[in-house]
């Protein structure tokens, strides 16, 4: 517990060590700490911005999906309308076609009937002529009686 020159030396060491730390230890460490604080702050800010961008784009995406859904519904309803319309059109066309076929068939039938009637008339005329020949038992001058015969034909 004696006091001696040691404490003077200790005081000098005290200042030398303090100076050393101030010069070589403290500044790089403080700089690293400040840099890291800045990095973290930047990172947080970037994360915040990223989050906002994400929010904006998900909102936009939702909008797009909504729009697409509406458009799809519109397209479907149009298609349904159009299909109904097409069915109606097809029905009309079919009905018209049927009518036309029917009319054609009727005309043909009429024609056939006319033709058959004509043939029948010819046969009847021939039969009448043959009958008349048989009745008269003589040759009729066909030429002389053509006019008479055709008149007769018409009357049948």
């Amino acid at each position: 517990m004696y006091l001696n020159a040691t404490f003077i030396a200790q005081m000098v060491v005290f200042f030398i060590l303090g100076w050393f730390t101030m010069k070589f230890v403290w500044p790089p460490l403080m700089k690293a700490l400040d840099d890291r604080a800045k990095k973290i702050a930047d990172g947080l800010e970037a994360a915040e911005q990223g989050k906002q961008a994400l929010d904006a784009s998900s909102r936009q995406a939702a909008d797009e999906v909504d729009k697409a859904r509406n458009r799809a519904a519109e397209i479907i309803s149009q298609a349904e309308k159009r299909s109904v319309q097409m069915i109606e059109e097809a029905k009309g066309a079919a009905r018209e076609e049927g009518n036309r076929e029917k009319a054609a068939a009727k005309a043909e039938i009429d024609q056939e009937a006319g033709r058959a009637r004509e043939a029948l008339r010819d046969q009847v005329a021939a039969l009448v002529v043959a009958g008349a020949e048989k009745i008269l038992r003589r040759e009729i001058n066909a030429q002389a009686h053509t006019e008479l015969l055709s008149q007769l034909k018409k009357e049948i």
């Binding site: 004696y2 006091l3 001696n4 020159a5 040691t6 003077i8 030396a9 200790q10 060491v13 060590l17 050393f20 730390t21 070589f24 230890v25 460490l29």
Partner: peptide, 27 residues
Amino acid sequence: IIDMSVINFDTLFWSILMGLTGCIVMW
């Protein structure tokens, strides 16, 4: 009690050694 011509070598040696150790590790 107080004699400025005396110096404690052991105190100085260990205090400087510890100071250097601490400073060099931090450095």
